[in-house]
């Protein structure tokens, strides 16, 4: 099926070029993921990957006329934020007991 994508559909080429551009953006971001230096930097960039990925998926949905890919983008956009929440919550809960031990009477 991917073969048919942009033959008699001039916008198809345009979409594919745009996806390539977005992917090139991700390539630049890869440097940050690899080099860090902090875990937060890496996670932040991985999140931006996700945002760019949503863009690529939406464009691919048009380029390959596969509307189902829009649903993939939707699911992606919904779930991506969870990782950041888990990360920040893990960190703040880390710091809380170090800062003050009587933190509002934790369930014991």
């Amino acid at each position: 099926m991917p073969e048919e994508e942009c033959n008699d559909f001039p916008m198809g080429i345009f979409y594919i070029v745009l996806t390539l551009f977005l992917l090139a953006n991700m390539a630049a971001a890869m440097a940050r993921v690899f080099r860090g230096p902090t875990t937060a930097d890496r996670l932040m960039t991985a999140q931006l990957f996700g945002t760019t990925g949503v863009g690529i998926l939406v464009l691919l949905a048009e380029a390959a006329s596969m509307p189902a890919l829009r649903d993939v983008a939707l699911v992606f956009a919904l779930l991506a934020v969870l990782v950041v929440l888990a990360f920040t919550r893990g960190r703040t809960a880390d710091e809380a007991p170090a800062a003050d031990n009587g933190n509002g009477g934790d369930a014991s």
Partner: peptide
Amino acid sequence: GAGLLGVLLIDSLAA
């Protein structure tokens, strides 16, 4: 792969 497993991994590591 990208959504749920990431949360499980990160949160378990933190915990």
